[in-house]
Design a protein around this nucleic acid. Structure first.
Lengths: 342, 342
DNA sequence: TTGTAGGCGTTATCAG
DNA sequence: CTGATAACGCCTACAA
């Protein structure tokens, strides 16, 4: 006994295939009484629509556009790679993807790109970007043209996106905080916080979570003000040196990217492996640093999961289908040397 | 311009649909020359097969059988729930699942069940079980009858399964070891190890990984012999009390299930929250213990991922299709209070 | 060894 | 408003 099909419900309801289809897709031109009859037949037979067959018949394609910042460190590249791989797999379900890089930080440029998106040619849009008023409006406009939009890695809470794919930055910061506190032990210690920039909401939220936890649960730990390096290795080195003149350092919290620069700086100062270092995101650099013991933990989100989730969610939104919350929920990964993925 | 279809390559290669299909599915009865011609056309046009359409045409169903132990603690139940949910989702790809519980530990019973599996009626088998000779043979026999078999959570390395879905227990133990070492700090400390039973290979491997790390990297920590409780709360309490008469305890490593019993015992002794407790698997009990601060970390594998992976891999094996290693690789999750999933 | 025709479950285009 | 009928991309008898 296999699953009932449209034919079965057509027979059961005493109507034709076409009518069943109209009811199924909520298309106009059917009497209310007929609709009821069909729906009853559907319920009676426990019919569930075969989406594979439906999509085949529609011969619909799902061209998705993903916008990623141009520079943005290794994490962005990791995500880009994961997206490419996910796209290959998703081709099996007619989901295509084009990756568009925009000048990092130039949200006007990105907004212009979004304004140029043709709803006929694009079934969904994903973007990783900081939240600015222009961008917020651009997203709104896009959604007004019935294009689903999801935010990637960095949330755009006020832009009214259809979905956010990523982890809660504040919780990620809290997680980093607990690990830092526990790894340091119960002695009075100082912790430096480094960031390339504090412009992104992610960094701010992480720092907030980090501080919350240390203040509440590890009162012996003093967290220093954030040192913004703006990607300059020299600034990092100078800043660290300055901090070190005053005090002994117990740990370093790396808010964003820059694992490589930090390792280099620490090495120059003979501090490699002598302070607890906790960072974010698993990249080639942070992975190497974990393996060699220069970094002790990394708070991460799985890029493969992020990428697959992006495409799946966009696809579901394009079909106005519900999404499986459980499957799309990204975990806050704690990565140490011992549980590094192969 | 949409994707090329079998029609396109048939035309391009100057053969018929059926021949293309034969080549595509590596069926016999085609001249070598024709095969080459078709393959060339495929390459030239960049054809990728539409699996959805293929499966529709086959109208093939994939009835999978999953065997889980009967008791086995909350983790097994969590997996069972996850499987049920995954099965609902997988119904979209004609994958059905029946969950069969067998008397925990009775591998003869399980082997008999496996012997009764009809290759016509079952497209794949997954099982969570300890490795015993009878079972090993039963799995071999099943595979000999062309039924794909995957091991769930607990590996059966010598049974020749098609795949293992789960995490490396030794690495999981190492991860627990590092966390224990770091959480304890740099003072001499003693750690008790509790297990319901050491019969399962998982527990043994975890303990091995745990010991390795502590011996190598945390020489100040002394790990006591494993205390087997056999699920008896009283045994646990007595054993703990005995350990405590001799020494102060810095930490407890819970090798298997029994979070609830442990919490109760610790409470009775006024030790709740005063020793570092690290366990395995995220269940209702361990989750509650994390939230209340009675357990400090749990090494886990995502049951949702485990379940979806199981069905996906079985499906792929049934179709003799390659699997996406990256997607099927389960992560060793480190769960603390701050990164508990919602 | 190869080709033809029909079908899988759904949608879409016509007439009625 | 409703109903035949032909797609969609692929597989599979059966025929040649």
């Amino acid at each position: 006994m296999s699953r009932p099909t449209v034919n079965d419900i057509a027979r059961e309801a005493g109507v034709s295939l076409a009518t069943v289809d109209r009811v199924l897709n909520a298309r106009p031109g059917v009497r209310g009484k007929t609709i009821t009859a069909v729906n009853e037949a559907i319920a009676r037979l426990g019919y569930v629509r075969d989406m594979a067959a439906a999509n085949l018949a529609r011969s619909r394609r799902y061209p998705m556009a993903v916008f990623l910042p141009d520079g943005g460190g290794q994490f962005v590249q990791t995500v880009a790679d994961a997206l490419d791989e996910a796209a290959q797999q998703a081709a099996a379900t007619r989901t295509e993807m084009s990756l568009i890089r925009y000048p990092a930080g130039d949200t006007h440029h990105l907004a212009a790109l979004l304004a140029g998106v043709d709803p006929e040619a694009v079934a969904g849009v994903a973007l990783m970007a900081p939240e600015t008023p222009v961008l917020r409006d651009a997203v709104r406009a896009l959604r007004a043209r019935a294009v689903p939009v999801v935010a990637l890695a960095s949330d755009l809470p006020n832009a009214g996106c259809d979905h956010f794919i990523g982890i809660d930055s504040r919780a990620a910061g809290r997680t980093a905080g607990v690990l830092m506190g526990r790894f340091l032990g119960a002695r009075p210690q100082r912790v430096a916080v480094l960031a390339e920039t504090m412009l992104l909401r992610d960094a701010i939220e992480r720092r907030r979570g980090f501080d919350e936890v240390l203040q509440a649960d590890f009162p012996l730990v003093e967290v220093l003000p954030t040192l913004e390096t703006h990607g300059a290795t020299e600034a990092l080195r100078r800043g660290l040196a300055e901090i070190l003149t005053g005090t002994d350092l117990g740990g370093i919290y790396l808010l964003g990217s820059g694992h490589r620069a930090l390792t280099a700086a620490l090495e120059g100062m003979g501090l490699l492996g002598r302070v607890v270092v906790i960072g974010h995101e698993l990249t080639k650099a942070s992975r190497a640093a974990l393996e060699s013991g220069h970094i002790h933990a990394v708070i991460a989100q799985n890029p493969g999961h992020l990428a697959r989730s992006t495409l799946r969610v966009l696809r579901a939104k394009a079909d106005r289908q519900p999404i499986d919350e459980g499957q799309e929920q990204l975990r806050i990964d704690i990565v140490i040397r011992e549980n590094l993925p192969a």
